[in-house]
């Protein structure tokens, strides 16, 4: 332990991290020190994707990132995806997961939701195969992925749908 502190920028807000042990992962600090338990951990080895967050726009496994090295990065967690300032309204991807039945136990969901935002923001028209590949680092034990694919396709199609014309 030390008396040093560092700051992390998470979901647009600066957070001070005090008295932390230098070996703590970003996942641990988010969850246990910053009160952001939305990021999950199921392996702490970079194998399951449930800890996925965005760091400067890139999807990373927060269990593999030392928190103290993330000081200059813009970090976005599942709690910070919504553009609504209170983060109360679900994003299109979050709503699609609900509507398409992509959530069972929900433990994989936060990581998947972050990964899917990352995918659709880079590639708004992913093919079925690109979708499968993009989330192949996110393990889901409950759904067998079928409804998760459906959720991603739903979010993709809704983003690409032409804006609704008012009826005449």
């Amino acid at each position: 332990m030390s008396n040093e502190f560092y700051s992390l920028i998470v979901n647009g807000k600066e957070h001070e991290v005090r008295d932390a042990w230098a070996g703590e992962s970003l996942m641990y600090v988010l969850r246990e020190r910053l009160g952001l338990p939305g990021t999950k951990g199921a392996c702490e080895q970079g194998e399951c994707g449930s800890c996925t967050v965005l760091m400067d726009g890139e999807a990373v496994c927060s269990c593999l990132v030392m928190a103290a090295t993330a000081v200059d990065a813009q970090i976005v967690t599942v709690e910070g995806l919504s553009s609504d300032p209170t983060h109360a309204t679900p994003t299109d991807v979050q709503q699609a997961f609900i509507d398409a039945g992509g959530v069972q136990c929900g433990f994989c969901t936060p990581g998947l939701v972050v990964a899917v935002h990352h995918l659709l923001d880079r590639n708004p028209q992913p093919t079925e195969l690109q979708i499968k590949e993009a989330i192949s680092g996110n393990i889901c034990r409950c759904t067998g992925y079928g409804r998760i694919f459906a959720a991603i396709e739903l979010a993709r199609d809704q983003r690409n749908a032409p804006p609704e014309q008012p009826a005449h």
């Binding site: 969850r31 952001l36 338990p37 939305g38 990021t39 999950k40 951990g41 967690t77 599942v78 709690e79 919504s82 983060h87 679900p90 979050q94 709503q95 997961f97 609900i98 509507d99 039945g101 959530v103 929900g106 433990f107 969901t109 936060p110 939701v113």
Partner: peptide, 30 residues
């Protein structure tokens, strides 16, 4: 979403779905 009442036979929406997609659902590890 489909405008149904969420009765038996419908794909009613899970009450924990919103919290789960937003990372607000409290797992025992939380």
């Amino acid at each position: 979403k489909r405008g149904e009442r969420g009765t038996l036979g419908n794909s009613a929406v899970r009450p924990d779905g919103l919290a789960k997609v937003q990372g607000r659902f409290a797992f025992s590890s939380d």
